[in-house]
């Protein structure tokens, strides 16, 4: 007798718990790179100040200037390569191409490959490279040059890619294949080994997380 009432009641409780969504955990990407802790004048808790990507001014395969402002309010992925690189670049670029193909027309994210051999990689060479990789729209994926070799290496370091001239390395430059994910404020939010399929998959998963965060920031601004 008791069972008759108990069972439906129990089933109902089970059903309702099944319907309530688990609490959403807010996935947030870390901010990478240098940071500075600055005490506040009013004696309140100190501020952590993160280093942003420094100002750069490049020229891409369309001959157009590319700077931090080009990506204002948007996310972008960077890597460092050179057109004649017989070492890791083709592998790295083929992996980045896979990521690109997941977001070919999403205006919230774009791609930036910077040459570390600007003496050879003229605008014409970069244009040929981009076309051969199948990238028709320079504003979606910039292949760009800083014009100066030493400054390119410096910018590479800021974007977590190490470069050293090395006569033993294929192509004369030893470098690693970091893909760096930069947010709308210029902070590096992820660094992935472009030669490691697992890490490239992580980049693919992280991009939507960052885009959602940026969308949230824009909505917040709109409300105010």
């Amino acid at each position: 007798m008791l069972n008759r009432f108990l069972l439906p009641a129990l089933a109902a409780t089970l059903l309702t718990t099944a319907c309530t969504e688990p609490p959403k955990t807010v996935a947030a990407l870390p901010i990478l790179g240098e940071r500075d802790v600055r005490p506040r004048a009013d004696g309140g808790p100190a501020d952590t100040v993160y280093a942003a990507v420094p100002a750069f001014r490049l020229t891409d395969q369309a001959g157009q200037p590319v700077s931090n402002q080009t990506f204002a309010g948007r996310a972008y992925v960077t890597d460092f390569f050179f057109a004649t690189c017989p070492g890791i670049c083709p592998k790295m670029q083929s992996e980045l191409l896979k990521v690109y193909k997941k977001f070919p027309t999403d205006p919230r994210i774009s791609f930036l490959s910077i040459t570390i051999d600007p003496d050879h990689d003229s605008t014409a060479v970069l244009r040929d490279y981009a076309q051969r990789l199948g990238i028709g729209d320079a504003s979606r994926w910039h292949f760009a040059s800083l014009g100066d070799r030493a400054k390119s290496f410096e910018l590479a370091n800021h974007l977590l890619t190490g470069v050293v001239p090395d006569s033993l390395a294929p192509g004369g430059l030893a470098h690693n294949g970091t893909l760096a994910l930069v947010d709308d404020r210029g902070y590096i939010r992820g660094a992935y080994d472009g030669l490691n399929a697992g890490q490239v998959a992580a980049l693919q998963r992280d991009i939507p997380v960052l885009l959602a965060e940026i969308d949230g920031r824009k909505k917040g601004v709109a409300k105010k």
Binding site: G87, P90, K91, Q93, S94, R132, L133, G134, L195
Partner: peptide, 16 residues
Amino acid sequence: CASCHGDQGQGLERLI
């Protein structure tokens, strides 16, 4: 070879 020509010998678009 695989870093340029691909692990399945597929090459890379019109670059390799």
